[in-house]
């Protein structure tokens, strides 16, 4: 599903590499936490997966493709097989919940009939049935993140990447989001979640990958958040 072979990434005009010789493999259907303090390289890790950056050295394989060699025009097609969720939700404020989810399908040219069918299904799955016509501004943070997850999952991606999805949420809403991500993981979708939320990591007991100053310092199955940073 994901394989990093001795991946290093150095940004131009920076001396210290953001990632240094990272090698790891994530199998299909896994649930993986990516932890580490700010500046540890988590964002770079995710940007490499999304092919927003290319590695300086080494190779990043996602869904069997070497992203370093993937030509630009093939990148959109690759991203359709990924779902992405962010801390700040990234919803369109002038579209309803249903329109926000439908937007992701419209812009990849899905036919209207298919969109009308799958959007209610996925909103039901994330627990937003009945709120299709609300605007994002009328929803709580937890509900907005559910919309974002619905949008990321509506295309049934093989891999869901979540960048601190609970970072803006209170503990109660966070638990709800984690239950949802766990449910999505049980459908066979691989979930990779970068987080600072110690309680969640300790409670879920999933595989934990820790980065520190660009180095992979821990890869532990059924791990905990680790040391206090």
């Amino acid at each position: 599903m994901i394989r990093f072979d001795n991946v290093s990434k150095t940004y131009p005009k920076q001396n210290r590499p953001a990632l240094m010789d990272v090698s790891l493999e994530i199998e299909k259907g896994e649930f993986v936490f990516l932890v580490g303090s700010s500046g540890s390289g988590k964002s770079t890790f995710l940007r490499l997966l999304l092919r927003e950056e290319r590695p300086s050295q080494g190779a990043v394989h996602v869904l069997g493709k070497d992203l370093g060699r993937l030509s630009n025009w093939k990148v959109p097609h690759m991203r359709r097989q990924l779902g992405t969720v962010f801390q700040d939700f990234r919803l369109l404020p002038n579209k309803t919940v249903a329109q926000n989810v439908a937007f992701a399908l419209e812009v990849i040219g899905k036919p209207k009939a298919a969109i009308n069918k799958v959007v209610p299904e996925v909103l039901d799955l994330v627990g937003l049935a009945g709120k299709e016509d609300r605007m994002p501004g009328e929803l709580s943070g937890g509900e907005q993140q559910r919309v974002a997850i619905a949008r990321a999952f509506v295309n049934r991606p093989m891999l869901l990447i979540a960048d601190e999805p609970t970072g803006n949420l209170d503990p109660q809403n966070s638990v709800g989001i984690m239950k949802l991500l766990d449910r999505i993981n049980r459908t066979g979708t691989t979930v990779l979640m970068a987080t600072h939320d110690q309680a969640i990591v300790d409670q879920m007991r999933k595989r934990v990958i820790e980065l520190d100053k660009g180095h992979l310092v821990r890869d532990q199955s059924r791990g905990v958040y680790g040391y206090q940073h």
Partner: peptide, 17 residues
Amino acid sequence: RRETGIMRLVGASNFYV
């Protein structure tokens, strides 16, 4: 840019964006 950011994220082709 918000729309185009999402479009790129969900894999809209350059043509579509």
